[in-house]
Amino acid sequence: LTSEGEYMDIDLKEKVDPVEALNSLNDNMVEGLEITGFKYLPDDAEKCMSAVTAASYIVTYKDSKDDACYIDNISDLKLKFFDEAHSINIIKKTKKGERELDLKPLIYRFNLTIEDKVPVYDFLLSSGSTDNIKPELVVKAFHEFIGLPEFDDLSLDIKRVDMFTGQPDNFISLGEIGDEH
Rank of each mutant, 00 (worst) to 15 (best):
G175T: 07
V138N: 00
S75F: 01
D116S: 15
D152F: 10
E20C: 03
D66S: 09
A68V: 13
Y40A: 01
L154E: 15
T113K: 12
A51K: 06
V120D: 03
C69V: 12
S56Y: 14
D72N: 13
V161S: 09
G32R: 10
L33T: 11
G32W: 10
A45N: 07
F171A: 03
V19E: 11
L41F: 01
T2P: 10
Y57V: 11
V52F: 06
S155N: 15
F151P: 12
L156T: 05
L137K: 09
K15I: 13
L103Q: 04
N111F: 00
E115Y: 06
K78G: 00
Q167H: 09
D44F: 12
D116A: 10
I114E: 14
G166C: 08
K104H: 07
G128V: 08
A85P: 11
V118M: 15
H86I: 08
S155F: 05
I71Y: 10
Y40N: 02
K96N: 15
L33K: 13
A68M: 15
Y7V: 03
I158Y: 04
V120I: 14
D169R: 04
D152M: 06
C69E: 10
E115H: 07
L156A: 06
M29G: 10
E144I: 10
L77R: 14
M163R: 14
L101I: 04
D131G: 05
S127W: 04
V16T: 09
Y121A: 01
A51R: 10
E136W: 11
T130F: 09
L148T: 15
V138G: 00
E176F: 02
I90Y: 06
I74V: 15
E46F: 01
I172L: 14
S87W: 00
L12R: 08
T130C: 06
I158W: 06
V139S: 01
L33V: 13
E34L: 12
T60F: 03
L101P: 05
D152Q: 08
F38P: 02
V16M: 11
E20I: 08
I58G: 03
